[in-house]
């Protein structure tokens, strides 16, 4: 029987990194919600008490952002802008409506994913810096009150932007079936590549795993 070729899309290190970021991210976002929305302070109880949520949120946040930055560095070479990205972007409507034959071919990552990549780069860096600035009682005393006020604002803005992109990420990953399996076990099928990332098959790094 003919066996369909499976192609390694995510290496083990990246997969472990990804799911570690998911776990710490869920904790960070839920506790973050408890400080953002007074009415949702009960979400802080996932840490035990609201005080514990406050104390653990920055640590979980670092455990989310630092491995995320490592991942982003490792995926950088897949996310450079390429020729053809613009035509794909202009055909975004066909992508969303699954008009297969109208979608321009793209490689390992499509331009939408590249935008997501850039958003995660910016937000993870800004969240880490502003998070350290507002980390009481350890680091905040070293900054002026005005800069801490702006840090608090930027932290919230970046957290909201990151969350919106996480929602989009989750939506796309679960919509394009086979993606989640790819991130869990590493492999996607040749047919999956042909449909979603055809140029990936030309990529030499995938010819031999």
């Amino acid at each position: 029987m003919h066996k369909p070729e499976l192609i390694l899309r995510h290496k083990m290190f990246d997969r472990v990194c990804h799911w570690f970021v998911v776990a710490t991210g869920i904790f960070t976002f839920l506790t973050g919600f408890s400080f953002f929305y007074p009415s949702f302070q009960w979400l802080g109880l996932i840490a035990g008490t609201p005080e514990l949520a406050r104390a653990l949120h920055p640590i979980a946040g670092l455990l989310m952002c630092l491995p995320l930055m490592v991942m982003l560095a490792r995926y950088y070479h897949h996310n450079k802008w390429e020729k053809g990205d613009l035509t794909w972007m202009l055909a975004i409507k066909d992508v969303m409506l699954e008009n297969e034959d109208k979608i321009p071919p793209i490689g390992h990552y499509n331009p939408g994913q590249k935008v997501l990549f850039r958003t995660f780069v910016i937000t993870s860096i800004v969240l880490t810096i502003t998070g350290i600035m507002m980390w009481q009682p350890y680091f905040t005393p070293f900054f002026s009150t005005v800069s801490v006020q702006w840090a608090i604002l930027l932290h919230a803005v970046c957290a909201v932007i990151m969350l919106i992109f996480v929602i989009v990420h989750f939506w796309m990953a679960t919509w394009v079936e086979g993606s989640v399996a790819g991130m869990l076990y590493g492999y996607v099928s040749k047919a999956w590549c042909k449909k979603h990332h055809p140029n990936m098959l030309n990529d030499e790094s995938h010819s031999e795993k």
Partner: peptide, 14 residues
């Protein structure tokens, strides 16, 4: 829009 499923060349083997 519904599900976005790949039709495998050889679903059983897949």
């Amino acid at each position: 829009v519904g599900r976005n499923i790949v039709e495998e060349d050889d679903p059983i083997a897949y």
